[in-house]
Amino acid sequence: TFELKGKVGKVVKIAEDHYLVEVEGDKWIAYSDEKLSLGDRVMVVDVDGLKLKAKRIP
């Protein structure tokens, strides 16, 4: 999973306390310091076990 750092994905679902992000065809649980919206493009900035930390990108 460490190779996911720096990869770009898309928010495909918003849950109460996390997001579901699709990166290279796989879906991952993600969290972010900022509020994300459905369809936002994100970059993986860190990997915490099986969770990704994501940041919105333009």
Rank of each mutant, 00 (worst) to 15 (best):
K13L: 10
K51E: 06
E34R: 04
E34H: 08
L4H: 03
H18Q: 11
L52I: 14
K5T: 14
V42H: 00
D48W: 10
V21K: 00
G49V: 05
D33R: 07
D26S: 14
K10W: 13
G25V: 04
S37I: 13
V44F: 15
G49M: 05
K35I: 12
R56T: 04
R56C: 04
E24W: 04
V47H: 08
V23A: 03
K27Q: 12
T1H: 15
V11W: 01
L20I: 13
V42E: 00
K53Y: 08
K10P: 05
K7V: 03
K5E: 15
E34P: 02
G25F: 07
L38A: 08
E24H: 05
I57A: 07
E22F: 12
M43N: 03
L50M: 14
I14V: 13
I57M: 10
E22C: 10
D46N: 03
K5G: 09
E24S: 06
R56H: 05
L20K: 06
G9Q: 00
S32W: 01
I14H: 06
F2M: 15
K35F: 10
K35V: 12
L20V: 09
D33H: 08
I57H: 08
K35C: 10
D40R: 02
R41V: 10
G25C: 08
A30M: 15
V44C: 03
M43K: 06
L52P: 01
D46S: 05
V12S: 06
D26K: 13
G6V: 01
E16N: 13
W28P: 00
I29N: 10
E34M: 06
R56P: 06
I29A: 11
I14A: 12
K13P: 00
L38M: 10
E24I: 08
I14M: 11
A15P: 03
V23M: 06
I14E: 11
V21T: 03
E22P: 00
F2W: 08
G6E: 03
V44N: 01
D46T: 03
R56G: 05
K51P: 02
E34N: 07
K13E: 11
K51L: 10
P58R: 07
L4Q: 09
Y31A: 08
D17M: 10
L38Y: 09
L4F: 03
K35M: 10
M43C: 14
D33S: 08
K13A: 11
A30D: 00
K35P: 10
V21H: 00
P58F: 12
K53H: 06
E16Y: 13
E3R: 02
Y31I: 12
Y31H: 11
G39V: 03
G49I: 04
V21S: 00
A30R: 00
I57Q: 06
A15C: 10
V42M: 07
K53M: 05
W28L: 02
D33W: 08
V21N: 00
R41G: 10
E24C: 14
T1G: 15
G6C: 07
K5L: 15
L38R: 08
L52G: 01
I57V: 11
V21I: 15
D40F: 05
L50P: 07
V12I: 10
L38C: 09
L52F: 03
W28T: 02
I14G: 04
L50T: 09
L4I: 14
I14P: 02
R41F: 14
A54C: 15
K55N: 05
K27D: 09
G9S: 02
K55Q: 13
E16P: 12
V21R: 00
L36M: 09
L4M: 13
G49P: 04
G39Y: 13
E3Y: 06
V12N: 04
D17Q: 11
L20A: 05
K51S: 09
T1S: 15
D48M: 12
M43R: 04
L38K: 08
V44L: 03
V8M: 11
V42R: 00
V11C: 12
V42D: 00
K5N: 14
S32E: 01
I57G: 03
P58S: 11
D48C: 15
K7E: 06
V23T: 03
S37H: 13
L38E: 08
K27V: 09
V47M: 07
G49D: 07
S32D: 02
Y19T: 05
A54I: 15
K5S: 10
Y19W: 08
V11L: 04
Y31P: 01
V8D: 10
A15R: 14
D26A: 14
G25L: 06
K10V: 11
H18W: 10
A15W: 14
G39N: 13
S37T: 12
F2Y: 06
D40G: 05
L20H: 13
V12Y: 09
L4G: 14
V47L: 04
A54P: 01
L4R: 02
V8T: 14
L4V: 14
R56I: 05
D17W: 11
V45Y: 03
A15Q: 12
K27E: 10
K7C: 09
Y31W: 14
L50G: 07
E22I: 13
D26V: 14
H18G: 13
L50R: 09
G6L: 01
R56F: 06
E3H: 05
T1I: 15
R41S: 14
V12K: 06
S37N: 11
V11K: 00
V11Q: 00
G25M: 08
K27H: 08
D17H: 10
G6K: 01
L52Q: 01
G6M: 02
Y31D: 09
Y19K: 01
G9F: 06
Y31N: 11
K53E: 03
V12T: 09
G25A: 06
Y19H: 02
V47F: 14
Y31L: 14
K5D: 15
M43L: 10
R41E: 14
E16S: 12
W28A: 02
V12P: 00
L36Y: 03
D48E: 12
K27Y: 08
D33K: 07
V42C: 07
D33M: 09
D48I: 15
V42I: 15
L36K: 00
K35G: 08
R41Y: 13
G9N: 00
V44A: 03
K10C: 13
G39T: 07
K53T: 07
K7H: 04
V47I: 07
I14D: 08
D40I: 05
L20W: 13
H18K: 09
S32G: 04
V21D: 00
P58D: 12
E16H: 12
D40V: 06
G25W: 06
V8Y: 08
F2I: 15
H18L: 14
P58V: 10
V42W: 01
V8I: 13
A54E: 00
A54N: 01
K7A: 06
G9H: 01
A54T: 15
L50H: 11
K7Y: 03
V8G: 05
G39D: 13
L50K: 08
V45N: 03
E34S: 07
G9W: 01
K27G: 08
D33L: 09
K53Q: 04
K51M: 09
A54V: 15
V45M: 06
L52C: 03
V45E: 09
E3K: 03
G39P: 01
E22Y: 08
K27C: 08
D26Y: 15
T1N: 15
K7S: 06
V47P: 02
V11H: 00
L20Y: 11
A15Y: 13
E34I: 04
S37C: 12
K13V: 09
R41K: 11
T1P: 15
G25T: 06
R56S: 05
V21E: 00
W28N: 02
G39L: 11
V12C: 08
K53R: 08
V45A: 05
H18D: 11
T1Q: 15
I29M: 14
V11R: 00
K7R: 05
D17F: 11
G49N: 08
V47W: 09
K53I: 03
A30E: 00
F2K: 15
I29F: 14
D48G: 02
K13C: 09
E16C: 11
K51Y: 05
K51N: 07
E16D: 13
S37M: 12
G9I: 11
P58M: 12
R41H: 14
E24M: 10
V8K: 08
M43A: 05
L52Y: 02
L50Y: 14
E24T: 05
D46G: 06
I29P: 09
I29T: 10
K35Y: 09
V45S: 04
D33I: 10
S32K: 05
D48T: 11
